[in-house]
């Protein structure tokens, strides 16, 4: 902007000297000054100067005969260039018009065969051009749709990622809370266990076998204070069933107790089943315990029978 002010004589003597030293010493600065002069004249002709600049231009610059010549030359040049561009555009349309007129004049000639051939060629060219034009348009439209779709997918992806991250954070909080709850519960159970007096629960191992009087026959003698009796059923086969069921009957056939769907997880080892049975069920009698297993196919198989006698005290 200083260059323009320099040209308009709006700078102080000192500022003028500074600019002059720069454009005398450096060619690029001098070229920039020439360009500024060019642009100033162009802006004046096209009415793009501010009021102050315009006034100054007219009083200071146009008074100079060489400048006035420059302005006239530039104005004439811009007009010729404008006319030239307009003429070229007009020329393009007139060429198209002339071509079409030529085609129609050929069609009107007496030689119908030529006329027909030209017409066919023209028709194909026209159809081809239209086809190409519409194809390009359609492809552009598809492209912009795809771009829009792509953008939507990207947005959704970002949104889902945000939600997942929020969910993960929430899950983390829940897991933490659960862990705290479990710890509290464990502590409470430990406290409760410490306060609760241990109940006496006699334990017996039972060997498989159904005949009385053989080695497998077990006598269960437990005090009346015992609430439950722990039975450990030993098996001489591998216990690999999905579920287990137990039925305890008196030797006369009356069912005393049963438990079904004991899961494999409850079987501590592969050949031992542990169970707690309330002592209140038993009287002074002989009992038969049957251990059955449910296979993966859903069939129930009897694994072992255990015979034992109960002698309460």
């Amino acid at each position: 902007m200083n260059r323009r002010q320099y040209l308009l004589g709006l700078l102080t003597e000192r500022q003028q000297h500074k600019i002059e030293e720069r454009y005398f010493a450096r060619d690029d600065m001098f070229h920039a000054m020439l360009a500024a002069e060019d642009e100033l004249i162009e802006d004046y002709i096209k009415g793009r100067l501010s009021r102050r600049e315009k006034k100054r231009f007219e009083s200071y610059i146009l008074a100079h005969p060489q400048w006035s010549q420059k302005v006239t030359t530039m104005k004439a040049m811009l007009q010729v260039l404008k006319e030239d561009v307009t003429a070229k555009q007009r020329n393009f349309f007139s060429v198209v018009g002339d071509t079409l007129r030529d085609i129609f004049s050929i069609l009107n000639r007496p030689g119908r065969v030529y006329a027909l051939s030209y017409a066919v060629v023209f028709f194909f060219i026209l159809t081809g051009s239209l086809y190409l034009y519409y194809n390009v348009q359609s492809m552009q439209s598809q492209l912009s749709q795809l771009e829009r779709g792509n953008k939507t997918l990207r947005d959704n992806d970002i949104m889902l990622r945000q939600r997942l991250s929020e969910q993960a954070s929430r899950n983390g909080q829940v897991a933490e809370m659960l862990e705290q709850e479990q710890q509290k519960r464990k502590q409470l159970e430990e406290q409760l266990a410490a306060k609760t007096p241990r109940l006496f629960s006699p334990s017996f191992s039972l060997q498989p076998g159904v005949l009385r009087g053989v080695e497998s026959h077990k006598r269960l003698v437990f005090p009346s204070s015992a609430e439950t009796v722990q039975l450990q059923l030993l098996a001489d086969v591998e216990l690999d069933y999905r579920f287990y069921s137990i039925v305890i009957k008196t030797v006369s056939g009356g069912e005393v107790w049963s438990k079904t769907y004991i899961s494999a997880d409850e079987v501590e080892q592969q050949n031992v089943v542990n169970l707690n049975v309330p002592t209140a069920l038993f009287a002074y009698d002989d009992y038969l315990l049957t251990l059955s297993g449910v296979t993966a196919a859903g069939e129930t198989e009897t694994i072992h029978s255990y015979f034992f006698s109960v002698i309460p005290r």
Binding site: I45, G47, E58, L62, A63, P65, S68
Partner: peptide, 10 residues
């Protein structure tokens, strides 16, 4: 005269 000639670019 020269100044007057350029008073209005229009």
């Amino acid at each position: 005269e020269s100044k007057q000639l350029y008073t209005d670019p229009g």
